[in-house]
Design a protein around this nucleic acid. Sequence first.
RNA 1: GGAGAGGUGGCCGAGUGGUCGAAGGCGCAGCACUGGAAAUGCUGUAUAGGGGCAACUCUAUCGAGGGUUCGAAUCCCUCCCUCUCCGCCA
Length: 430
Amino acid sequence: MLDQRLLRDNPELIVEQLGRRGMTLNLTALQLIARQERDLEQQRSDLQAEGNRIGRQVGELIRGGAAPHSPEVQALRDRGNTIKQQVAVLEEEEKSLETRLREQLLAFPNLPSPHCPDGAGEAENVERRRWGIPRMPVAGEPALEEHWQIAERLGLIDSERSVRIAQSRFVTLLGAGARLERALISFMLDQHASRGYREMLPPILVNSASLTASGQLPKFAEESFSCADDDLWLTPTAEVPITSFHRDEILAAEQLPLKYAAYTPCFRREAGSYGRDTRGLIRLHQFNKVELYWFCHPDESEAAHAQLTADAEAVLQALELPYRVLDLCTGDLGFSAARTFDLEVWLPGAGTYREISSCSTCGDFQARRASIRFKDGKKTRLLHTLNGSGLAVGRTMAALLETGQQADGSVRLPQALVPYMGCDRLLPEA
RNA sequence: GGAGAGGUGGCCGAGUGGUCGAAGGCGCAGCACUGGAAAUGCUGUAUAGGGGCAACUCUAUCGAGGGUUCGAAUCCCUCCCUCUCCGCCA
């Protein structure tokens, strides 16, 4: 959420910065609401102050021996009642203005960071670096398979029966496939723990307040599955429960940064993606993800962003998966993010880079929505939040299958996974 | 699911209609004492919003929302949550 004070003091900055995202705004109406709301508050609190004075006077008179229904006391009572009615009217107006103001402020995305490259969309994202040598098809050898072909051939996933259990875009992992998924989750969590992250296993049903705090509500309700009877939703990312883990807290400066690594299943409707990535592990309604999350001091969030991204990259490097890093342009930036580095892993079978992690700094945007602050000396300030996948597990498996595929039909696994899998190769089931 | 108890500041805990944003204690910070520390003493120590250059001041907040009253932490209603016992259950 944007700062109300910014709306009041420097609305041009909002118009200019959201303009970088391609939005055209006119804030005059909203500013008017903000101003009216403040005037009403002033009037109301003045009236309440008078009411409080009258209340005290009545108390003093009665304790001083005045009859509770003497004309003197009665006059004060009448005045008190009048004030009460006036306050009620003002309060109602004030509340409706406040609600409108908040609704609109909640619908604005974050301001992009000054470092975020300008651009209209995906095509203008800026590649920052590459790691590893992408595997390419070799002339004379059989074509490289896509991960879903390998997975089906090796009996690692069953998509068709999953439709019977749920619907399309759900998969069931089997045998070595299920084991590999579990191994990857353990491997990622262990690696992050060794780099200073505290492991967390949060609830994956979250309430509306939690989705609002991290920015998925009110604008993106159609992206999440809901259990409407209970005001609970299936979390679309661990970012949601982790943000709200510290909602409404004031942390000590010495506690910062707080770094969490959480494994959760994630649930997304994937509305509007009909027909895209329909096979395999790339785009599912339910997928596993290990999420990295920092709560940090505002002065340190830029360095934290680099570190968090490096921590996610370290997983890819340990798994020997070539990737590139994109600096998302303003037009491709997510709602809550001020700046985002996407990690895209190379998929040799598909012959393309695919997003496998999105590492964002949100500045104080989520902290303001969630009211998460820290003590900076005597002052209480909003802290900064950052999140990134470390990594999306299904997509990691897809990359491993495509990268490790061998001419004999088996899949070679990276050394780092051997302790977790108990083997260095996936073989066709006998 | 049934029965009962309860939700007060960073924590414990008092407070059943009036000057209570809230006693007391713990914790924390500053100062004094000390060679230094402990102990002790003094002072300070919630959040949000409005006004003011500032000192400061006004309003709201005692789980949430509503009601009664001139006045509510205190009385009434609804909801949420926690705890104890019973039942059920991985």
